[in-house]
Design a protein around this nucleic acid. Structure first.
Lengths: 341, 341
DNA sequence: GTGAAAGCGCTAACAA
DNA sequence: TTGTTAGCGCTTTCAC
């Protein structure tokens, strides 16, 4: 292995000088700079990260905590994060939220990651655990928009990246009202104890706009509270079987919407003529769905990018403020006016 | 920061003994083991990876090189890989195949990753680059099934994980023939210079089974040779516009199939009555497509798991053989007999 | 402006 | 069975 000392010897300078030209930490005469650079190329020298980390107490290594990668939603966020990380010499590791929260917190701390993006809110982490990470020098940004109202944990504290759905949901419901919808179902997929932001806003505006207030139309998930297509499928099937005569259904995300659409088609009903379907996220497959899915766009790639940028700032010792992004209503063909009669 | 020496002092043993109980590398009396374990808990000691890496020349850090995470195909492979890695104390980093090949090769080497899974074949890597990685102590497994026949590189050498499509494609084509199809289109999405395994096998069996041999029905992609839904959409639109009267279309992957379906619907044609559609991969959304997509299942999660297992073996100094998995034809509703008349 | 040297926390001989 | 110790390759003062 070629080490920094080899380069120093080859260039006829001291090891420290090699470090200095490499890190730009001190001024080095252009004479020596070029000699060192020459030596680096000739020897094919690549610095040893482990040694660097050990000495500098920085790993240039961050993580993204995700519940799954089957949902391209998280994949896109990860891509955004990586795109920024790469340009700053950072590498992004995948931390799957599997096992107990303590287990994946340990994995993060043990690696001395410089930072981690908690891409979703509902990992069941506690403030105590977050504090523990912080004390261990791991910076973090909290994504996702849920606000847990269960007893397990109060609102987590730390810089957040959130999305403001308020306008989009209002716009959506106004639109649905205008085209005649009165009974709208909402599939949350989540634990009934968790008050999810999307659901909360739906309920609020739904109430204010005078939609039918049938609690049966708001469906929580079943353990383990996944929000995949199969979950949307199952919950929609159940909802259809109890004949609630809703004319539109909103699901927590696009994946669940795909499942809902399948269930609706299987019952011999038509989308959007019989039932309109609306998702959340605007994953890129929602456009090629059949019919193309009306959904609320979340700037996923940007979320990943911003998360990484904030992390970089925090690592630099800067104070970081929470960031709020806006969602956008995307109208496609899965929504139509209620049939007359 | 709590170090190993602190633990040693606290437990009244030598630092080496702490290492030994931590790594199980040597026998330690149960008396000392419990004293050390106690101290570790009391102090909340977490070993420093950087120091460990520096001393052991192992990072317990691997990577997965992927072209994109918008396609859940790669997400699922990454999940499989991570599931095994985690249980062996490894962490998986995301290496996006962006920039030049030299750039991401450097990123891998510089991090001294113990290993990397090249999830797809067509990254444009050369044998020389692979050799370079190997010499730097980075083990690798090659996934994907393409066989480049262009001048850039001959077949890459190294342990592979491949999927045998032969049977599935034969089975598919036999089935299509039986139900009356004679003109079948194939969207490769790729560079025409790249002879892709899926395409090659299609051509071979297509020829042997006596399907119409119209070269216009085999469509290459356009730079930058992506295989996303929009690419399938665009190529199908073009194909439909030149009125080739095909009755079935096979696309390189499910994503392209989704795009193809959209294009077909937009032309006012019906799936499967007018045109049957078949994909590859069996990503989990293919089941909720409309109609549910007939496709060839690739064991994605298993590929990730096996890749990681092979990597672990290589890191252990074992000789590793290439692995060949079988694909499976999944019949769903996007295929139907050709209409009479 | 440049270099010498003391760590960073751990592994892995080798001693005891 | 347990302990001692010499590195691993780099950062970072602090002299020169």
């Amino acid at each position: 292995m070629i080490t920094r000392d080899d380069v120093a010897k080859h260039a006829g300078v001291s090891p420290a000088t090699v470090s200095n030209v490499l890190n730009g930490s001190k001024y080095v005469s252009s004479e020596l700079v070029s000699r060192v650079e020459q030596a680096i190329i000739e020897l094919g020298y690549i610095p040893n990260r482990a040694a660097k980390s050990l000495a500098s107490k920085k790993t240039d290594h961050v993580g993204i905590l995700v519940p799954t990668l089957s949902n391209p939603y998280y994949g896109t966020i990860a891509e955004g994060m990586e795109s920024i990380a790469r340009h700053h010499g950072y590498i992004v590791s995948l931390i799957m939220a599997e096992g107990s929260t303590d287990q994946y917190i340990s994995r993060i701390i043990e690696r001395q990651l410089d930072g981690v993006f908690l891409s979703d809110f509902n990992f069941g982490l506690t403030n105590k655990q977050l504090l523990h990470m912080k004390n261990k020098g791991v910076h973090f940004i909290i994504g996702g928009d849920s606000s847990r109202s269960d007893s397990t944990s109060a609102t987590l504290s730390g810089p957040r990246i959130t999305v403001n759905y308020e306008n989009s949901i209002y716009e959506l419901l106004m639109y649905l009202k205008k085209i005649g919808h009165r009974r709208i179902a909402f599939l949350s997929g989540n634990d009934p104890l968790i008050t999810e932001a999307r659901q909360t806003l739906f309920l609020k505006w739904s109430h204010e706009l005078g939609f039918d207030d049938d609690p049966d139309l708001v469906v929580s998930g079943t353990p383990p509270y996944m929000t995949l297509a199969e979950d949307g499928y199952r919950d929609t099937k159940r909802l259809l079987s109890i004949r609630k005569n809703f004319t539109a259904i909103i699901t927590l995300n696009d994946l669940m919407a795909f499942g809902a659409m399948k269930a609706i088609r299987e019952e011999g009903l038509h989308i959007p003529e019989d039932i309109s379907v609306i998702g959340f996220d605007n994953i890129y497959l929602s456009e090629t769905a059949c019919p193309p899915l009306t959904t609320i766009h979340i700037p996923k790639y940007e979320i990943g990018q911003i998360a990484m940028k904030l992390l970089l700032e925090m690592i630099d010792g800067e104070d970081v403020q929470s960031v709020k992004l806006e969602s956008t209503l995307i109208l496609r063909d899965s929504v139509a006016p209620v049939k007359k009669g």
